[in-house]
Design a protein around this nucleic acid. Structure first.
Lengths: 186, 186
DNA sequence: GTCTATAATACGATAGAC
DNA sequence: GTCTATCGTATTATAGAC
């Protein structure tokens, strides 16, 4: 067993895994620490040994995606401005959500924005979503351009997780989402 | 003072008004009955005189929009199938959310889906959104078509309320949203 | 690292007076 | 129609034993 595999099964990581699944499925407020602990066969107090607060668990879930967005934004800065760069950035953005965990995370963001925006991690991620939007902006500042841009990102998000009425394999959904997102950017 | 004006200022209506504003702003779970009562200068018990449960308050908020959707779906049934009918249905759908209250309601739906879907009223409205989607469907059943359709409705929703980065007047937003929604339907 | 036990607080909801 | 007072239950979080 490698170090990475050990990390995957230790309690701290399991807490993240279970919390993410529950947050995505039923939202942040409706998920209690008792519920998380129960699923792992431990007590609430044990959870508190690993994370000081419930919000800290939530915040930890965003580390990878936040770093991924930063990397993309930095990359865009090194490239010539133009449609090719924007489309490639969009593709890389989609790639961030290709894993199961990241798909659950973006489902949570998409379906529980209200729970989210008042917390520190929510404010933080809001800035990151704004930064990737800015990196993708074709320069136009019209209301319609802003709305198209926002919908373009939502297209990617919706393509990243299964939802009723939106069946198909993950690959089909991702392909369709990227095509639509590209169209919306024009 | 007309009867309608009286209705507007009686306690039952005021509860709906305050609850909607709070649900839209901070979500359903995070909004307590104490908070609603406090804003109105009454007690929790007084709120319970008008509504048996918290969920009943929530459900009552959807009456008008639900009826509006049903009316549109019925209307589509009487029209010849075709692009003109679909675009007009989209326009009428948007019209449902033109008022301030309906705008707050659709913001709540858009930003708090998770709170929503497990409740009876959530299941009910989910069916209605599915029915308007079916009425708008161009017949194609591909994953991309489904996603385009869903984004088309989201475009209308996002255009109906103010959000950071999406400024402009309500009319500007609505016009832009309808244009994009129409494009997404193709 | 996990436990039992509990503190402190808030919630939705109800009883009964006025 | 609104009040005070309270019930029962859940929550987040902490203290201290093992």
């Amino acid at each position: 067993m490698t170090v990475a595999d050990e990390r995957r099964t230790d309690t701290r990581s399991q807490i993240r895994e279970v919390a993410l699944a529950l947050f995505a499925e039923q939202g942040y407020e409706k998920t209690s620490l008792r519920e998380i602990a129960e699923r792992l066969g431990i007590t609430k107090a044990a959870v508190y040994y690993h994370y000081k607060t419930k919000e800290e668990i939530l915040a930890s879930l965003f580390d990878d995606v936040a770093a991924g967005i930063d990397t993309i934004v930095e990359w865009v800065g090194t490239q010539p401005a133009g449609s090719e760069t924007r489309v490639e950035a969009l593709r890389r953005y989609q790639e961030l959500f290709s894993g199961e965990a990241a798909g659950q995370l973006i489902r949570f963001v998409q379906e529980s924005q209200a729970s989210f925006k008042d917390l520190a991690v929510g404010v933080d991620m809001k800035k990151r979503f704004a930064s990737i939007a800015a990196a993708l902006a074709p320069g136009g500042g019209s209301v319609e351009d802003h709305l198209r841009l926002r919908l373009s990102l939502i297209a990617i998000h919706l393509g990243a997780f299964h939802t009723e009425g939106l069946d198909g394999s993950a690959e089909e959904r991702a392909e369709a989402a990227l095509a639509i997102a590209r169209d919306l950017l024009r």
